[in-house]
Amino acid sequence: MAATFELELVSPEKLLLSRPVEMATIPAWEGDMGILPGHSPMVVALKGGIIRVRENGAETERLFVMGGFAEITPERVTVLADEATPVTELSRAEAESRLSEAEAALTAAAAEPEAVRDRVMDRLLAARAMRDAASAA
């Protein structure tokens, strides 16, 4: 049996996943990160994207997150997601609606301070990633 680590994925609504896995790929702001047992400890910010879970040598689950944080230790990865949904449950119509709202919010925030525009841009990028994930599902 391959080495494993405990993966927990928590959203504000519920605990979505808690079990040993061989590998997880998370959408960190610095780029997608592959995590294996024994990974160096760190905390990373997540962007909107897909968490891929590997068990028994195969990808077993794909979950879309709108952002959040991941705490990584050699034995455990805890993902605190702003929002998380299995990719198979994503709706392209919902994603398009969120993208339209985010685009309108970005236009409305043109005169706002840079920190406000950055948060709105993060939401826009997450909505685009959601639309892309829903289209590929």
Rank of each mutant, 00 (worst) to 15 (best):
E71F: 08
A108M: 03
A115Y: 08
V21C: 02
F64G: 05
R131S: 01
S40V: 15
A28G: 15
P37K: 11
P12F: 03
F69H: 08
A115K: 03
A70F: 12
D122L: 10
L124R: 12
A129Y: 02
A105K: 11
D118G: 02
D82W: 01
G68L: 12
M42H: 08
P41Q: 14
G38R: 01
F5C: 07
E83G: 14
G49R: 05
L125M: 03
V21H: 05
A111P: 01
A28V: 09
A24P: 03
E112C: 07
T107L: 00
G68R: 06
L16D: 10
E114D: 06
P74S: 09
V87H: 11
H39I: 09
F5H: 07
V10P: 06
A70Y: 06
T88L: 14
E30H: 03
S40K: 09
A109C: 08
P74R: 08
R92E: 15
R62M: 13
P27F: 10
V43P: 03
E13N: 06
M42P: 01
A109Q: 04
E101A: 07
S91K: 09
E112N: 10
I72K: 10
V77Q: 05
V79L: 07
I35D: 04
L36G: 02
E103G: 07
A133R: 00
V79M: 06
K14H: 06
R119N: 09
L80A: 14
A105M: 04
P27M: 12
D132R: 08
L16C: 08
R52D: 12
P113I: 14
L16Y: 10
E61L: 15
A81R: 04
L46H: 06
I35C: 13
E101H: 10
E55D: 14
